[in-house]
Design a protein around this nucleic acid. Sequence first.
DNA 1: GCTTGAGTCTGTAGTCGCTACAGACGGTAG
DNA 2: CTACCGTCTGTAGCGACTACAGACTCAAGC
Lengths: 138, 138
Amino acid sequence: MDRRSGIAIGALSRRTGCHVETIRYYERIGLLPAPARRGRYRLYGAADVARLAFVRRARELGFTLEEVRALLALAAEGEGACAEARELAAAHLADVRARIADLRAMEAALAEAVRRCDAGEAPGCPLIGALSGRAAPA
Amino acid sequence: MDRRSGIAIGALSRRTGCHVETIRYYERIGLLPAPARRGRYRLYGAADVARLAFVRRARELGFTLEEVRALLALAAEGEGACAEARELAAAHLADVRARIADLRAMEAALAEAVRRCDAGEAPGCPLIGALSGRAAPA
DNA sequence: GCTTGAGTCTGTAGTCGCTACAGACGGTAG
DNA sequence: CTACCGTCTGTAGCGACTACAGACTCAAGC
């Protein structure tokens, strides 16, 4: 299957948990280098596995593909790049926190609406009422 | 400006905080009905303002446009639809909570990485190290 | 040898919720 | 009458995939 030279895209997919189509997509946008080929088939080595795993972990932390691109470049630079990486992460962290705050506001409003639905207090549906602009009674 | 018959799209935009292009987009996808016209210009009445405000509030709660469509239909039905609206909201609430959980995991990992960067403990960048798959020391 | 089935290939189009034009037309103030 | 803003239609772009269609390659079983 991999006569000493590497693994096929399906094996890489299984190893990294990244869909085959997504791997090809990453290659197309230049996030992954064009790999070696055996015939028409892509052939991946250890460095490719590591790079894709890096991308996957960064994506799991919510970095955008452009940020991942920057992180990959910084990782290639080695030392020195730490301060820049820290900046990227800190900016992204602020973004994540803002999104959490937004979602928490949604959560509170939704939970309240559902609670009032369950209580069955007001005439009419409290959820639809709230969306229609009728303020909730205290 | 609005000789008794309604307001223009720009005024509707200002009143609802919804971009002009977005209003036209909502119309195109059938979320808003095609409004009356004065000449070539769209002309909106009170019902249009209310409907768009409803959409805006639902979007602020994070409902998808398809969910908003369903909510609008339920609102039009009046009573009886409350149980269904509740179901929609409860499902969406679960979704929001799942997203919050995801983001919190990201937040924790990012905050930890930034903290370890600041501590400057390990050799090399801890953030890049973590992305590269080198587990953080306890 | 021949077939079958899984895997892979390229290329294109769809998703969601907008956003950003281009290029033409309408209405009003100076 | 001209300048300028608002509005019109239509199309294309964004991010990050996802989902095909239709062709090919390869290894295994009969």
